[in-house]
Write a protein that binds this DNA or RNA. Structure first.
Length: 876
DNA sequence: TCCAACACGC
DNA sequence: GACGTACGTGTTGGAG
């Protein structure tokens, strides 16, 4: 049986380009789109084994669709130069593979594909279409399948009629009707305003086609909807026409001439070498037999009912499966192990009663490779099972290799490398309310696959880390840090529940009173928490001037309200109501909800693989944003107390760590001297920027200087600074300029780092953490400016993150070595919170300060302030 | 169930 | 010349 594969060349090239960082070969030619395209081709060839194959391209700027609608595809971003220069390479690549390409004036790739698909269908061939564009789904039939790239490049979904029905509840042909109603912003097809995917599908389920919908407008419920449909009848019909693929393109070749047999290996190898596609080269050699699809029914593994030492070899890939998102006090669904000797599933009951297993888990000489170490260590820690000897972690390795990835799930990590060897958790377990433990055998196979993938990925990832000079960062910093964090999470922070409740009580009363006063001042009762209702009251009923608007109406944000303070008594009360409301809902009620009642402790989860800069984040609850600036909120900290009698809460924070890091990496002599002399850095900045002596610095000057420093640290723009200081953008820009004049070393650094980012496509921190910035070469001003600010900021913020992480690892070791009972509880970006027995305070104070200040040596001193008290509030 | 608006920390 | 401008987490209201 003949098998025709049709590829939408433009669409796949676009996808590849935007999915991958802007790679280039040693000659500086951009190759990311070619690379992604190649991965896709190899995958298609291997999986589809086509007898015939065509890659279709769009030709020229205008098509017959522009005659219908002049605005078709207008407003589209121009193809970036970095991508257009890759198209010739893609053509060259296809020629080397001996794959036909086809384009024809006046028609789009879609139409060519549609025409060929129809022709092949008539001949009873099987057809597979590859694109990134949902429009193509209209071609699906019993003989035609459509595969769409989802995110990334080889991450795909294949659709047959059933799949479309499952996903959209409509037939392939109705895809056109759907587009007619909802439009398509990327092609500038208007559709009917106000109708999105959901509404379109609902209408089509009832009326089948756009035409029927339009004829039945009377029967449709909703006044707005009727009006919209009525007003846009013509537009809907035209949109449908635009979305319809034309299947009668005059193609001057016969279907049979598009055969695909073998590729010209010599040419392909030569081209791959030219493009620096070394990984793909290796693949070609071993290539064809290599397993790149999901392992299925026939995997062989053993279900263990008694653990023996023979199956516990070193190294082993180990999966400790916990499917609930929050892993504290969670169920472990089972263990799988893959090593030299075989593949094993160990049920939780078997493992937990096996001394052999426990000894192996505890034995640090027995090396284990994990998918997510902290998750496993914490889940097991709650069951008093010790896990040592973790030598590799897929999550952390993948994060370091590319912190901007949106997922580090094993399925994605393998897919990114051109293989899919394991199913998505969501597919196996379901999502949301439907998430559940699957049948025993499905679970076993899934977990075996996971362990298998960990076992194979380890080497690849390790090599990539080494190539990037990130292996030390991985093994000496992030890996040990995961264990430190695991301990902190299990330890938890003790909360004085009665105190929180009492504060909640009082807040509730104040809120009720404020609410009453606000309603009286407004003359009507309304929901103060609703920006919509509040906006109407303030700007329509009370006729206050609306200063700012949001997409949906009037802005009622704090900075707007502050400007209206003097104009009405109600404003102050609203601001106060908001402040107290936030405290009550997020911090009192929110925290009480997550207290573990058996111990009165809160156990957060630190996400170690999320931020682009290398900082941690904290969830369920977020303990990194407990109020401090306003006294009323700061009182919340009184409820965070030491967990044992005669212990205290101890806090140590770095003073100006980011600006010190800046002084070091920029080598700005003025800044370095200032820090060496331990000057007040904001005052020093003000002196230099305003050209005044120390005693002439006014509080306003210092405030401005502080805001500029803040801007430098967080990479904000002149606009951001102007908002901060309440000045114009121009004035803000001048401030920044004067700052750069005063600190020429900083200015040089900023220029250099942007240049470097452009050359490499990424920036790094002192410890080689990376962040890729593909948009730094964008012609879109916004994207480019953003990337430039990120380039300046990430090395600063990221190095600061490196430093405190280093301190945490060292502190963890030293506390243990010194046999102290004091323990780390929290990290809040530049500060560490511990709980300490009173008789250890002196020792710990010295140790913490010493470790933090010497975590990494810079050309400026690091300074740490510390304090302690009965609660977090008192540790100030 | 999702998104927008808002507010908290660094 | 306009663009729409640190990040991350959580709550609420409101639309579907």
């Amino acid at each position: 049986m003949n098998k025709l594969v049709l590829v939408d060349g433009n669409s796949i090239a676009y996808r590849a380009f935007f999915a991958l960082p802007l790679l280039n070969n040693d000659k500086g030619v951009y190759t990311n789109a070619v690379y992604g395209f190649t991965m896709m081709l190899l995958k298609i060839i291997e999986e589809e084994k086509p007898t015939h194959m065509v890659v279709a391209f769009d030709a020229g700027k205008t098509t017959f669709r522009h005659e219908t609608y002049g605005e078709y595809k207008s407003g589209r971003q121009k193809t970036p130069g970095e991508l257009s220069e890759q198209f010739p390479l893609i053509r060259e690549l296809l020629d080397a593979f001996q794959i036909s390409r086809y384009e024809i004036e006046n028609y789009e790739a879609d139409d060519i594909i549609g025409t060929l698909a129809k022709q092949a269908e008539k001949e009873d061939w099987n057809v597979s279409v590859y694109s990134g564009d949902k429009d193509l789904l209209q071609l699906v039939s019993p003989k035609v399948k459509v595969t769409l790239s989802r995110k990334g490049i080889t991450n795909v979904d294949t659709y047959d009629e059933q799949a479309i029905a499952d996903k959209y509840g409509i037939t392939p042909l109705q895809i056109i009707d759907m587009k007619g109603l909802m439009g398509d912003s990327s092609d500038n097809i208007p559709g009917v305003p106000g109708i999105g995917e959901k509404t379109a599908l609902k209408l089509l389920k009832e009326y089948e086609t756009v035409e029927n919908v339009l004829e039945s407008i009377d029967k449709i419920s909703g006044k707005k909807m009727k009006e919209r449909l009525e007003e846009n009848k013509e537009q809907a019909l035209m949109s449908k026409k635009l979305a319809t693929i034309f299947s009668d393109v005059p193609i001057d070749r016969s279907l049979n001439s598009f055969t695909f047999e073998e590729y010209d290996k010599e040419k392909v190898v030569a081209l791959f070498k030219e493009l620096d596609f070394n990984t793909l080269l290796n693949k070609l050699d071993v290539g064809e037999t290599e397993e790149t699809t999901l392992q299925d029914e026939d995997i062989e593994y053993e279900v263990i009912d008694e653990v023996t030492e023979e199956i516990l070899q070193s190294p082993s890939a180990l999966i400790v499966e916990v499917i609930s998102e929050n892993y504290h006090q969670a169920d472990v669904l089972g263990f799988t192990i893959v090593n030299e000797s075989g593949k094993y599933f160990i049920p939780t009951e078997v493992a937990s009663q096996s001394d052999v297993f426990m000894d192996w888990a505890k034995d640090s000489t027995k090396k284990k490779w994990l998918a997510d170490t902290k998750r496993a260590v914490v889940a097991l820690g709650w069951k008093d099972i010790e896990l040592n000897g973790v030598a590799f972690d897929i999550l952390l390795a993948s994060y370091l290799l590319n912190p901007s990835s949106s997922s580090y799930e094993l399925a994605d990590v393998t897919k990114e490398r051109g293989k899919q060897l394991v199913e998505y958790d969501e597919t196996v377990y379901g999502k949301g309310a439907k998430r559940k433990v699957p049948e025993r055998e499905i679970l076993e196979k899934h977990l075996i696959n996971k362990a298998q993938v960990v076992y194979t990925l380890k080497e690849d990832l390790e090599n990539e880390l080494k190539k990037n000079e990130q292996f030390e960062l991985f093994s000496e910093l992030e890996m040990p840090l995961a264990l430190v964090l695991a301990k902190m999470e299990i330890t938890g922070v003790k909360v004085d529940e009665p105190q929180l409740k009492a504060m909640g009580q009082e807040l509730g009363e104040q809120l009720a009173l404020l609410e009453k006063e606000i309603h009286e001042l407004a003359g009507v009762s309304f929901n103060i928490n609703s920006p919509k209702q509040l906006g109407e009251i303030l700007f329509e009923k009370l006729n206050l001037p609306p200063i700012k608007k949001t997409k949906t109406g009037y802005s009622t944000s704090a900075d707007v309200l502050e400007k209206l303070q003097d104009q009405h008594e109600i404003i102050g009360k609203i601001l106060h109501y908001r402040q107290l409301g936030k405290l009550n809902s997020t911090y009192i009620e929110g925290l009480l909800k997550v207290v573990h009642h058996d111990t009165s402790k809160i156990h957060t989860i630190f996400n170690q693989a999320l931020t682009q800069t290398g900082r941690l984040s904290s969830t369920e609850p977020n303990l990194q944003n407990i109020p401090i600036r306003l006294e009323e909120g700061r009182k919340i900290r009184k409820a965070f107390v030491a967990s044992e009698k005669d212990w205290v809460i101890f806090a140590a924070d770095y003073s100006q760590i980011e600006l010190r890091v800046l002084a070091h990496i920029a080598q700005d002599q003025g800044l370095i001297t200032a820090f060496k002399e331990d000057m007040d850095i904001h005052t020093k900045t003000a002196m230099d920027v305003f050209h005044v002596k120390e005693d002439e610095v006014t509080s306003n000057m210092r405030r401005s200087a502080k805001a500029v420093n803040f801007g430098i640290v967080y990479g904000i723009s002149d606009y951001g600074l102007s908002q901060n200081l309440g000045i114009t953008r121009k004035e803000a820009a001048q401030f920044i300029e004067r700052y750069f004049e005063s600190f020429p070393g900083v200015k040089d650094y900023m220029d250099r780092i942007i240049e470097k980012a452009r050359e490499n496509g990424y920036v790094t921190t002192l410890l080689h953490r990376r962040r890729y910035l593909p948009e730094i070469t964008s012609r879109n001003f916004n994207l480019r400016s953003f990337a430039e600010r990120t380039a300046m900021n990430t090395p600063i913020q990221g190095t600061a993150a490196d430093i405190i992480k280093q301190a945490m690892v060292q502190l963890g070791e030293q506390l243990e070595e010194a046999n102290l009972n004091a323990r780390l509880l929290l990290q809040v970006h530049d500060e560490l919170i511990l709980e300490v027995p009173k008789d250890e305070i002196e020792t710990v104070e010295k140790m913490v300060k010493d470790v933090m200040e010497n975590a990494i040596e810079l050309d400026v001193p690091l300074k740490v302030d510390s304090s302690y008290g009965d609660s977090w509030y008192d540790a100030k």
